[in-house]
Design a protein around this nucleic acid. Structure first.
Length: 632
RNA sequence: GCACCCGUAGCUCAGUGGAUAGAGCAGCCGCCUUCUAAGCGGUCGGUCCCAGGUUCGAAUCCUGGCGGGUGCACCA
């Protein structure tokens, strides 16, 4: 909803009220036509962008719904309303186009309004806890994880840009089987890291090797892994796991991804979240401890009241041997995320490239650090593989049961589909993977070759190649909906043309280039740009400004729906409209949108508009975690 | 078997109940005597999986099919 939309809605509403009034005056002549019962105040008045081949900038199909309510021809209603309506500020004319009511904007007013509008949302006071990455600490991260990381990071940036406080958590499953297997593999094979490759890569290879060795020596390996798992639970191998996590974090750092807090599973358990979560649950009637049947001795939760139709409505929380299931720990963790449990301790873990401190949960840490309070989210969002939708639903259901039937559980699952590799399912266990580190290197290498070819004299070529290569990679992971399967193919993922980040970055560099040339004439300062004569602007500028005007709504929708692809698609749209403007030719076949060669007054107004184009492109890319170089 | 997700141009995908369904890639034809051609314009290409229904209006909502993916452990 832009200010123009709102003003237009108000104007149309008044006109409709007046129109209905005239029908009422004609009163007895037209009984039962609906005007006497029509509730104009609550009438929905849609305002939409007009297709490019139709007259007008914005239009409303409101006459259709009125036609039904008033039993009249929609085109007639549109004509009548066009005659009755008072023009809102910024609107040059309103006319009926068939049954539609279309408006032409006043270029000067509209463009000034657009270039003065803020790009970021105002502060909401809401805190959103986003969990993403959460890669098992036993191997290098691969392109399947890349999708998770990039989605989560983009969502965090989108929520921040929308005015929310965001805390990004990365959950470390340090007591799981996978970490145990990798660590055990080093002793089983008696291998020591020669330091020739990243530690997580070296360890990942041993993990795969151990998987193969199980075929011939299953029993001994099982016993050894179990031993390591117990040691992990006692917290004895924390520094070994930390070493893996640090190696993985180097990859995320290279992608430009940072976190606020690492949450270790062993700390979640030690803080009592598991036990206290279970206490809360055990008070509920749907929690039982059967003494016979297949779940004898286990603690189970009956979810049938919330998830009808399940073949097996009982979910095991604690096994009959006394060991808690993962989902039980997850329930405790999530009760803490939304502020219903307390007790983790924290210490600094690392200083990230931006300078921000990465915190970690730690048994020996402090309860409060640096004056900040972790968790206490008004909303929690989990970026997790769609294959885990069922366990996520169980966690959500447990929170629902502890909150009351009608309570709104502030937990979202951003479920994303898998990434396949040239059509093949990836498998860490089988070693069919493609490491993020490998892809980053290749992406930057390819981008560097193109930058060197197109623009060899740029001094910051390495930085630009990095921004372009990583941008292409991230964008490929973000441009489609999360629920779509992505088949990773090199040519597609690292493409520098078409629907890609470099396309948007190029549009941004073009605008930047103009603004460099313009710097001596006028610096864009919105509607206060010196020397601008707004009345010289025309439909071409309005078309461009209309696209910019969409941004706040796009940002809000992306945040509301946890949908970064909405921002990616918008960035492509704005870049397309801007490129079209840039290359536009008049009826005589000559360029008619030149900024620097435009006459004084028009030139300054265009400089201000181009400044807004550049800022909007850069801001949209930034919410996706993609840099926008000034030159490329 | 039950549940969830997907089905739109040759391929990969956008598309908030509204105007003649749009991009990119691939194919074909054009545009650098200068604000960046990583670009722009044109052209070719559609039973929006099928059948009903709701609606003034459906790719979009509902029901039933068909095809594909995923999930349904005292694993994580």
């Amino acid at each position: 909803m832009t200010p123009v939309d709102v003003a237009l809605q108000d104007a149309l509403r008044s006109a409709i009220r007046r129109y209905v009034g005239t029908l009422a005056d004609a009163g007895g002549a037209a009984p039962g036509r609906g005007h006497d019962t029509l509730d104009v105040d609550s009438l929905d008045i849609p305002v939409q962008s007009v297709p490019d081949d139709k007259p007008g900038d914005y239009g409303s199909p409101v006459a259709f719904s009125l036609a039904r309510l008033l039993r009249q021809n929609p085109a007639e209603i549109a004509r009548a309303l066009a005659a009755l309506v008072d023009l809102p500020v910024g609107v040059a004319r309103i006319a009926a186009v068939g049954p539609y009511l279309n408006v032409d904007l006043d270029p000067a007013t509209f463009v000034c309004e657009v270039i003065d509008a803020p790009l970021a949302g105002s502060a909401t006071g809401r805190k959103i806890v986003i969990e993403h990455t959460s890669v098992n600490p036993n191997k290098e991260a691969h392109v399947g994880h890349l999708r998770n990381i990039v989605l989560g990071d983009a969502l965090a940036r989108i929520e921040r840009a929308s005015g929310n406080e965001v805390e990004v958590q990365n959950y470390i499953d340090d007591t799981g089987r996978q970490a145990a297997e990798s660590l055990f593999a080093t002793t089983y094979f008696d291998e020591r890291d020669p330091g020739e490759q990243k530690y997580d890569h070296w360890l990942g290879a041993l993990y795969v090797r151990l998987g193969r060795a199980k075929e011939s020596d299953a029993e001994a390996i099982e016993a050894g892994v179990t031993g390591v798992m117990h040691a992990l639970e006692r917290g004895e191998l924390r520094s070994e796991v930390e070493r893996i996590v640090r190696a993985q974090l180097a990859t995320y750092g290279a992608l430009g991804v940072e976190y606020d807090l690492l949450v270790w599973e062993s700390d979640v358990v030690a803080a009592g979240f598991l036990d206290r979560g279970l206490e809360v649950l055990e008070a509920l009637p749907s929690i039982r401890r059967p003494t016979e049947g297949k779940f004898a001795g286990a603690l189970v939760m009956d979810v049938s009241a919330f998830l009808p139709g399940l073949e097996e409505p009982l979910v095991v929380l604690v096994r009959s041997d006394g060991n808690a299931m993962y989902v039980a720990k997850d329930i405790g963790y999530h009760l803490w995320k939304i502020g219903r449990l307390e007790g983790l301790r924290y210490r600094p873990f690392a200083t990230q490239p931006s300078g921000a401190t990465l915190w970690t949960s730690a048994p020996e840490g402090e309860a409060t650090v640096d004056g900040r309070s972790f968790a206490h989210g008004d909303q929690a969002v989990n970026v997790i593989d769609a294959r885990q939708s069922h366990p996520q639903t169980i966690v959500r259901t447990a929170l629902q049961m502890t909150s009351g039937e009608r309570a709104v559980v502030p937990l979202h699952h951003l479920a994303y589909e898998v990434v396949t590799l040239e059509g093949q399912a990836m498998s860490g266990r089988k070693g069919i993977t493609l490491a993020i580190d490998t892809v980053i290197d290749e992406a930057v290498r390819r981008a560097r070759a193109v930058v060197a070819e197109k623009n060899a004299d740029l001094s910051a070529i390495d930085d630009i190649a990095r921004a372009v290569g990583l941008g292409a990679l991230r964008f490929a992971m973000l441009k489609s909906e999360a629920r779509r399967v992505i088949d990773f193919r090199w040519e597609q993922a690292l493409s520098l043309a078409g629907d890609s980040a470099p396309y948007v970055q190029y549009a941004h560099a073009r605008a930047s280039s103009i603004l460099r040339a313009a710097a001596e004439v006028a610096v864009p300062a919105g509607s206060r740009t010196t020397g601008a004569d707004w009345t010289t602007l025309g439909p071409l500028e309005v078309r461009l400004a209309r696209e910019i005007a969409r941004w706040p709504g796009v940002l809000a929708a992306a945040a509301e729906d946890d949908a970064p692809h909405v921002v990616a698609q918008y960035a492509l749209d704005l870049a397309t409209i801007w490129n079209g403007y840039y290359n536009h030719r008049g009826a005589d076949g000559r360029p008619d949108t030149s900024v620097m060669r435009a006459e004084s007054g028009l030139r300054e107004a265009r400089i201000a508009l181009v400044g807004k184009v550049r800022d909007t492109l850069a801001f949209a890319l930034a919410t996706l975690g993609i840099e926008a170089p000034e030159q490329m």
